[in-house]
Design a protein around this nucleic acid. Structure first.
Lengths: 142, 142
DNA sequence: TTGTGTGTCGACATCACTATTACACACAAA
DNA sequence: TTTGTGTGTAATAGTGATGTCGACACACAA
């Protein structure tokens, strides 16, 4: 049950935009760093822009830019912008309603799953892109 | 990033075994309640047995049984028994090592992702099958 | 007006997961 | 010992999500 790679790649994108502060970056250049196609990057940038995290400068010399300060972008914001499925999948076919277990199991485990997801999201809310940049620079020096 | 349905179904199985305390339950009967095939149940039971959570009674009148008390089985144990992929996927193709961002991004975000996963698992560790049974009975009465 | 780069669509390959069939093995009951 | 029941595993196929790629219309800067 992995998340998609979108979350990791989106964080990569935002980090790249953060360190070229103010300079637009082309999707193709980002794609190069991520080692994928430009279309993948544009799709993610589209979602990030919709969430108010990035904006695009059209025309020659254009590219993507951050729409907020790196300190104001939490990993949780990134996660919500690009991931659209629930963390915990439940039964594909609904369980047998006539059964004591089947008819009530989803209600019984729902709150616990909700709390687990909230705990994860709360943790993601504690890290910002600025923090990632700091760690990135530390790793680069090592 | 969804988890597979295995976690939810495995919890369903263990809950069913918990409420028929001591009586073996056939995989086919469980499959009926879950609304899937018996082989799916057996595959999960195999993993649960390997993790020491269930055991099987062979032969006529046999079936699956809990190997521990419901109070001693945490949702975290179930999660670890049946889910085998990482919660957060990273880049499928490794990013460009020569790039400042590409070469260090995984190290930079790794700790944050680890903390998020640990927060989720800690929360799953706080609920047991016995708790689920209590909630199940409450839901059934409502 | 020209060139650059974005944004989006559609087709295709790939992968994980689920579902299903089939069959050998183990055990209990008679 | 024989018979029936149920488990455990392999093999296969179908399905949905995901990532990859090519193409093209549109917007903007120079």
């Amino acid at each position: 049950m992995p998340t998609s790679t979108r979350f990791a790649v989106a964080t990569h994108i935002l980090t790249a935009l953060a360190i070229t502060d103010g300079q637009p970056v082309r999707s193709e250049d980002i794609a190069n760093s991520v080692n994928t196609g430009a279309v993948v990057i544009r799709g993610l940038l589209s979602r990030l822009a919709e969430a108010g995290l990035t904006r695009s400068q059209l025309g020659s010399g254009g590219g993507a830019l951050l729409a907020k300060a790196p300190e104001e972008i939490r990993l949780l914001d990134v996660y919500r912008a690009v991931e659209d499925t629930e963390l915990f999948a439940v039964h594909r076919q609904p369980p047998l309603a006539e059964c004591l277990v089947g008819g009530n199991i989803l209600q019984a485990i729902g709150p616990a799953l909700m709390r687990a997801q909230e705990a994860m999201e709360a943790e993601l809310g504690r890290t910002t892109i600025a923090d990632v940049v700091i760690r990135l620079n530390a790793a680069a020096r090592a």
